[in-house]
């Protein structure tokens, strides 16, 4: 096995950031999706405060369209780490009439979850939300700060970002404002995978090759489920697949893969010709899809 491919400096930096959050804010939470990036955050938080348990709750915004394997894993991890879990449901936001379910074959709840998140921030009076976003994922993220200030509507203003110098983090905010914190900003997809390997972290089974019913649409393999609106021509068939990134079942595409072990998964990523978010259907809506969603308060 290859050794020491993960640059440990990134871990020291992330731990430093998490400790700044604990020191500078009163009610932080980790935004937990069950994906590999938020699993990495959980391990970093364990390391930052050991032997104290993670001093922040995990907040999961449940769209109701999750892979069941992700939910199973989430519950296992919470038990394992003794962390507190808070779940808020997009379905409740829909039932309250605050957002409307999308229709058509591309319908997903990806955009809708922003409202549920903003409601949760207000309800729980969170002043800092720690997320697993990375700058290498997407062009708008490449310019976002580690401490990203949001106004009372959760909005990001790319022109009013605070400069971050010498790693010094300024988390002073006014009442009503809150901060999104991105401790693994400087990690790449490969860094995360190498970290998972070197730390021997458990991850949900859908990251590994498994047989699944899929349909083919727009050149991508979509996982077949009750949540996906399909036409008569879109007939599901079984293939060996895995997921490279984990979002909702309605907006995450599968890749054909035989990789059943972590080393094989990493080898596949190394030779992949498609970027990670290339399999995120939610990003394909327009060239500036991510920046527009961030301005509205998205993760």
């Amino acid at each position: 096995m290859k050794k020491n491919l993960f640059p440990r400096e990134l871990e020291h930096e992330a731990i430093y950031i998490l400790r700044e959050v604990a020191a500078q804010f009163e009610k932080p939470a980790i935004l937990f999706s069950g994906g590999k990036d938020s699993i990495t955050l959980v391990r970093l938080a364990q390391k930052a405060f050991h032997p104290v348990r993670i001093p922040f709750p995990l907040l999961h915004i449940d769209t109701g369209h999750n892979f069941p394997e992700t939910i199973e894993f989430r519950d296992w991890l919470v038990k394992e780490t003794g962390a507190e879990l808070i779940v808020r449901y997009v379905q409740d936001t829909i039932d309250q009439g605050k957002v409307q379910e999308e229709t058509g074959k591309y319908a997903s709840r990806n955009v809708l979850q922003t409202q549920t998140l903003l409601d949760a921030i207000n309800e729980l009076k969170l002043d800092a939300c720690i997320g697993g976003a990375r700058r290498d994922e997407e062009k708008a993220r490449a310019k976002e700060r580690v401490f990203s200030i949001r106004d009372a509507f959760g909005q990001w203003d790319s022109k009013k970002q605070r400069p971050e110098l010498f790693g010094m983090l300024n988390g002073k905010i006014a009442v009503g404002e809150n901060v999104r914190v991105f401790p693994i900003s400087n990690w790449t997809e490969l860094d995360v995978w190498n970290y998972i390997r070197e730390e021997k972290l458990d991850i949900p089974s859908i990251y590994f090759s498994h047989e699944r019913e899929i349909i083919e649409r727009d050149g991508l393999y979509w996982p077949y489920s009750d949540y996906l609106n399909t036409s008569a021509e879109e007939i599901p068939f079984k293939k060996k697949v895995r997921f490279r990134t984990v979002g909702d079942m309605t907006c995450t595409a599968a890749v054909l893969s035989e990789a059943g072990m972590l080393d094989q998964v990493i080898d596949e990523i190394l030779s992949a010709t498609i970027s990670e978010r290339g399999a995120r259907i939610d990003d394909k809506r327009s060239e500036a899809a991510m920046e527009s969603r961030k301005k509205e308060g998205y993760f």
Partner: peptide
């Protein structure tokens, strides 16, 4: 180019 953008790449030597 208005803001600072962060770009990542690595070789077999370093990140």
């Amino acid at each position: 180019t208005i803001d600072v953008a962060h770009i990542y790449f690595s070789t077999s030597t370093r990140k």
